[in-house]
Design a protein around this nucleic acid. Structure first.
Lengths: 176, 176
DNA sequence: CTTGAAATACTACTACG
DNA sequence: CGTAGTAGTATTTCAAG
């Protein structure tokens, strides 16, 4: 086995500042205004957006395209109202696995992504290995999902469910 | 005080079916295809969308507008990449309040929405009163937020933090 | 009630200053 | 970055299934 694999990495604190301290610092006031608007409503036309940020339409379009190409804008999507779509129930579940092996984690993650209505799945520190959020129709359908799918996820030792009684805040908007 | 306030509501199981069983049932194959597409990428032009769902442009546009007016499409927004925006860290926190009074809940909820980077906040069943998810720059900035804001949220008895080590899945796409 | 074809108005996009 | 011009799209009208 190669000994370099276990060589302690240099801590290189002095070069840390070379990594962009804050990618947002490269954005001026106008870019931020564009992002704020598009995060709120991206169905606005480019000319209307340009007027809002006090720019000509081509200049505004160039900025938007730059923001997309840079990856800062990951995409433009339609948001569906869960209640209107018949999935008014939201459940947060904490998962503990049997064993903490790479294979066990990988297997669980593969299966977790297939769970219908799974919106989020994260590895976390603390008393759980994973947190997942699942959208479903009602408590009946969740109970079915729980009994038929969640409990059969590979390597699961324990599942604790936190049913959401009231959604105070649920946003995709990022503070700029 | 009005006695009717405490009258037991009729359980009316027989009329439950009168409430739209599944709002999605009213949607045909084409509407679903439109929603699937727009949830993935809403920056597509209407003509391109119309071609995808094999419809004329005007007919397609009418359906999209109908879906918006019905509230099923809650909005069209740009998604920002958290890492690129300098908030690569995600923390899920469970909150327990001191007292379970309406005033206590209301006060907390008002304050919680003001927390910078708070993406979600939900009332839950179980050992916590609330779950919140918070986006922040790094562990330093979260530590600052924790010490300066979270611990001072009104009525908080306990806060337990689950730092997200790996985001397996994070989607806005709803299963249709 | 919904669709599709044609006509118009507006917008995105390009080239250039 | 802005102005002007072109290409393409959104949107309305209307006739037909």
């Amino acid at each position: 086995m190669n000994a370099t694999k276990f060589r302690r990495p240099s801590t290189a604190v002095t070069t840390a500042a070379a990594v962009p301290a804050d990618p947002l610092q490269a954005l001026d006031r106008i870019d931020r205004a564009i992002l704020r608007q598009l995060q709120t409503d991206a169905s606005i036309s480019n000319v209307a957006l340009a007027a809002k940020v006090k720019l000509s339409a081509p200049a505004c379009l160039r900025r938007v395209e730059r923001l997309k190409e840079s990856g800062l804008i990951r995409g433009v999507v339609a948001l569906i109202d869960p209640k209107a779509a018949g999935a008014g129930m939201l459940v947060i579940i904490g998962v503990v696995l049997d064993r903490s092996t790479p294979e066990s984690f990988a297997e669980f993650e593969k299966a977790a992504q297939m769970v219908a209505g799974c919106m989020e799945c994260h590895v976390v520190t603390g008393e759980f290995d994973y947190f997942m959020t699942i959208r479903t129709r009602d408590s009946d359908s969740f109970n079915r999902l729980h009994a038929e799918q969640l409990l059969y996820l590979p390597g699961v030792r324990q599942i604790r469910s936190f049913m959401v009684l009231k959604e105070i805040l649920s946003t995709t908007k990022f503070p700029l």
